[in-house]
């Protein structure tokens, strides 16, 4: 028998009044994949995840996890699914352990050893008796992961797991996700951070204002990425723009800081540098503006009209 998709979202729509938060989104995640949902704030990522967890109902379309849906299976749909939406929340007047014990009850109960295991996995065993009200943000994020792991999930859904963490916390969280993925879990990671998704995921869906702009592997996305912009600081920017206008294929823009940004193939950038020298324009600084993948991400998710990127 063919194994059911871990996540199968078909033509889902969700509106809040006049605002379309999610517009006809479809998404499939195969078991064993580490999948990223990437997009800026307001892209509809969290709304999509809320629909997966049954916190909100789609206006149209279907959401199935391991072949189960809310309509057919109710809360059984979440069997084998763990995760959290935005920052995980707990009862501040209970200890970390008491919170987990209570949540375990709502799952039908787990033995104490399982709670010990997950607390060790997220490095909270030493602080398990402390009240959650005294936990740092990072500790609460890790407790959220522990609460998700209590159910021994096959699918882990994490929404912005590194949000609000300091650099060390981000490193630890990514290492933890990597470790869990290495154990064979399917991970669905929602993030606005390209580097996080690039570092962690095999495949990605990029969203913007409720719509899907790209589905595919990170490797394919890298191949589609344009050459990045180059940031120029010159002795005479006006003259530098005039020189650029003589070179076909080269595009010039101005950065928010006022520097010149040149876009083109590497040979065109080389030719531009030579032309500036020939024109007597002194080059004070030249550096790549963004990594190619980052450039593509911003091209996709910013501006008035997102370009079409075929999947």
């Amino acid at each position: 028998m063919e194994q059911a998709l871990a996540v199968d979202v078909q033509h889902v729509v969700k509106q809040f009044g006049e605002v379309t938060a999610v517009a006809d989104v479809s998404l499939q995640v195969a078991p064993g994949t580490v999948y990223g949902v990437l997009g800026p704030n307001g892209a509809g990522k969290t709304t999509l995840l809320r629909m997966m967890f049954g916190l909100i109902r789609p206006d149209a379309g279907t959401v199935r996890l391991f072949g189960r849906s809310w309509a057919d299976d109710g809360p059984r749909m979440l069997d084998g699914v763990g995760g959290f939406i935005e920052s995980p929340r707990f009862y501040p007047y209970l200890s970390g352990r008491k919170n987990l014990e209570g949540l375990a009850r709502l799952d039908g109960g787990v033995d104490g050893d399982r709670i010990d295991d997950v607390l060790r996995t997220v490095d909270l065993a030493d602080r398990q008796r402390d009240k959650v009200g005294g936990y740092s943000f990072g500790m609460r994020q890790r407790l959220g992961v522990a609460a998700s792991l209590l159910r021994a999930p096959e699918l882990l859904v994490l929404d912005e797991p590194s949000n609000g963490l300091d650099p060390a916390g981000i490193r630890d969280m990514r290492a933890l996700i990597g470790r869990l993925a290495g154990e064979g879990l399917t991970v669905l990671l929602s993030s606005h951070d390209l580097h996080e998704v690039e570092e962690t995921c095999d495949k990605v869906t990029i969203m913007r204002t409720g719509s899907v702009l790209y589905h595919g592997s990170i490797a394919e996305l890298r191949e589609r990425a344009p050459s990045s912009g180059h940031r120029f600081v010159t002795s005479d920017d006006d003259r530098a723009r005039e020189v650029a206008a003589t070179l076909p294929g080269l595009r010039i823009a101005r950065s928010e800081e006022g520097d010149l940004l040149a876009y083109g193939r590497q040979d065109e950038i080389d030719a531009y540098v030579a032309a500036l020298v020939a024109a007597g324009v002194h080059l004070r600084s030249l550096e790549p503006d963004r990594a190619p993948l980052e450039t593509l991400f911003f091209l996709l998710t910013e501006g008035d009209a997102a370009p079409e990127v075929p999947a």
């Binding site: 809320r50 967890f53 049954g54 916190l55 109710g74 809360p75 059984r76 979440l78 069997d79 995760g83 959290f84 939406i85 935005e86 995980p88 929340r89 707990f90 009862y91 501040p92 949540l103 709502l106 799952d107 039908g108 609460a147 159910r151």
Partner: peptide, 14 residues
């Protein structure tokens, strides 16, 4: 107040 609906509504209880 605690923002904990999402914590308990995503468990196995209806």
């Amino acid at each position: 107040q605690h923002g904990s609906w999402k914590t308990i509504l995503t468990r196995s209880t209806s």
